[in-house]
Design a binder for these strands. Structure first.
Ligand SMILES: [Zn+2]
Ligand SMILES: [Zn+2]
Ligand SMILES: [Zn+2]
Ligand SMILES: [Zn+2]
Lengths: 141, 141
DNA sequence: GTAAACTCTATACTTGGTATAGAGTCAAGC
DNA sequence: GCTTGACTCTATACCAAGTATAGAGTTTAC
């Protein structure tokens, strides 16, 4: 199977497939005589797995870890579960941050009604004067 | 004021200040004879304003828009309010996406208890078989 | 035989910075 | 006067997870 067919079957772009290869998520496939990539059905399965992980917003690094564990069928799946648990935690943390952010924004926004002039705008005044009450989130998911 | 002092006063790094200058959030300051940047108190105020906006997770583009409006005191503040409103909307949308993501992840995670082997791991089986039920969020905040 | 469709590599771009290298500048101490 | 350390300058590369070209080579259809 050439890369274009694989892209069609997975719904990933050709560039993305090559990108995953560079990132070592996908093994470098065999090449035809004219240097075209030639994929097996295994590669298709692997890509669908990766796509699934990405749709859950797992990072390349997280996916690498899971793939590594998956490659050894008799190993414990501990790492996999730990990765997912941590990822859930990542996301819950980000939700918490975004909720705090939303509250701050709504509060700032509430200080201006419509049709004011810039010099009377409560929002702008707020943005000029708020002290360091919040810290910016460090881990952006 | 030289850039190091400005960095100390704002809590931003020197590189970040130069970065904002490149992005035209901060006007290019005067230079000393030895080509050092020399800042006014205006620049300090501007940077604190920008920092405030960033702490609300506004993008550089959004901040540009607000700064542009702010520069004309007799203008209507409509643009500012619209920017904030849209930004709140951005964040609410992202929260919604992350909540959906969290539910998916928790559901996947629930299919595996501890201490299984890789070949019996429910999580891995899920990741292999889930169809395209969800779509990946497009706008990552 | 030629044109369209495909593939290859390499490179640049995105966001909001961070982290160097290598060169120049300034102030203090000796 | 000279060195040392702290500071600044520009330019460049790097991070994530791709996307989007350019320019060259290949295959397929007619
Ligand atoms: Zn994660
Ligand atoms: Zn207003
Ligand atoms: Zn926004
Ligand atoms: Zn498991």
């Amino acid at each position: 199977m050439k890369i274009g067919q694989l892209a069609d079957k997975t719904g990933l772009s050709i560039q993305t497939i090559r990108f995953y290869e560079r990132k070592a998520l996908l093994a470098a496939p065999q090449r035809t005589q004219s240097n075209y990539r030639s994929y097996s059905d295994e590669a298709l399965k692997q890509l669908l797995f990766i796509k699934q992980c990405r749709s859950l917003d797992m990072t390349i690094e997280e996916i690498s870890l899971v793939l590594e564990t998956r490659a050894k069928p008799d190993n414990s799946c501990e790492t996999v579960n730990a990765t997912i648990d941590k990822h859930i935690d990542d996301i819950e943390q980000r939700i918490t941050e975004l909720n705090a952010l939303r509250r701050s924004l709504v509060s700032v926004r509430s200080t201006c009604a419509d049709n004011k002039k810039v010099k009377e705008c409560g929002v702008l005044h707020q943005l000029e004067s708020i002290a360091e009450t919040r810290t910016t989130p460090k881990n952006i998911i």
